[in-house]
């Protein structure tokens, strides 16, 4: 007697459960072959497959007679899209360098953006390495704090400002501005194109920070800058 896959009850049940997908054609080639083989040797299963095909036809009919949405849905959608802020870059999943180059690409030629991003990244890494070497160990047992780059998410120490670079500022000017003022970017850009800058590694008095920010505002690379409390 020929042995078919349907002779094992559990196998037959499995095949039975796959019939709807076989009717639509969404099984893998291997599974489809398995079902075809079972159908060929099991008339009862084949009869059940015909019921599945009826259900398939009925379901398509039910859905196809449901109509379509009016133009109102599309109007609403695109009005809301129009009202959305300009597309922001996907901030959460990209590195600081990618965010910076993305922002720069939106305000200056792409080649300059890459150059500036690389320059800024080099600067902040350099600053971090120098800090790691020069800052004496802290703590009574002489342990040194962990290696933290200046481009890491803002630790809470230091004094900060939010800056929006001038649209006409090119990459070289931005890099020069950051270097000349010993600034590091710790976050951004946000939806409005603002970067968070570390202005000082210590917490400056409010007035001193305001004064520093006023001075930075004079730079032609800066569009807008404000202190961060």
């Amino acid at each position: 007697m020929a042995v078919t896959v349907t002779e094992t009850p559990s196998e037959r049940e499995q095949i039975e459960m796959l019939l709807p997908w076989h009717a639509v054609g969404t099984l893998s080639p291997d599974e489809a072959q398995r079902v075809e083989h079972a159908l060929a040797g099991d008339p009862e299963l084949a009869r059940q497959f015909e019921l599945v095909r009826e259900e398939l036809g009925g379901t398509i009919h039910v859905n196809e007679t449901l109509g379509a949405p009016s133009a109102r849905a599309m109007d609403t959608l695109f009005k809301r899209i129009e009202a959305e802020a300009p597309r922001k870059h996907h901030v959460a999943a990209v590195s600081l360098s990618e965010r910076l180059s993305g922002w720069l690409a939106s305000v200056s030629p792409r080649s300059l953006a890459y150059a500036a991003a690389a320059a800024v990244l080099a600067l902040v890494l350099q600053a971090a390495v120098i800090t790691a070497i020069m800052v004496p160990p802290n703590g009574s047992n002489g342990e040194r704090g962990g290696y933290v780059t200046a481009s890491a998410p803002a630790t809470d120490t230091g004094s900060f400002a939010m800056v929006q670079f001038a649209p006409q500022a090119n990459a070289a000017e931005i890099a020069a501005f950051l270097k000349a003022n010993k600034l590091s970017i710790v976050d951004g850009p946000n939806a409005a194109g603002f970067f968070k800058l570390r202005v000082a590694v210590t917490a400056l008095p409010k007035e001193a920070l305001a004064q520093a920010v006023r001075r930075l505002q004079q730079d032609k690379a800066v569009g807008f800058i404000a202190t961060v409390e």
Partner: peptide, 8 residues
């Protein structure tokens, strides 16, 4: 399964 033709 039947109308949107989605696999398992």
């Amino acid at each position: 399964v039947y109308y949107h033709e989605k696999s398992v």
